[in-house]
Design a protein around this nucleic acid. Sequence first.
DNA 1: CCTCTGACGAGTC
DNA 2: CGACTCGCCAGAG
Length: 95
Amino acid sequence: MDDATVERVRALVRAIPPGQVRSYGEIADEAGLSSARLVGRLLAEDGHDLPWHRVVRANGTFAPHIAAEQAARLRVEGVLAADGRVPAELRPRRR
DNA sequence: CCTCTGACGAGTC
DNA sequence: CGACTCGCCAGAG
């Protein structure tokens, strides 16, 4: 994967407004990536300085190992994650 | 070169 | 709903 793509992903994540979430898949498409997994991988390696907590799975759930931290950070922004998932209204819609 | 393993997603049953 | 499968890219062993 090339650096330009990585930058696109980082920019997209940075562009997510507080209190709002987007899915790995959406980021992947818009950044021109073929797989959502790559977005996850990028965030794991190079996303420490990004609002990664605003990126959730397509069904609104969190990745297991970061669920607690993610829920905490979102709560600060006013997003109350009940039952380890984001409220339906904020959940990334499939279309 | 092959297999396994992910911060994933969509489709089937 | 949950459980499984397959496609996806890259790095590790």
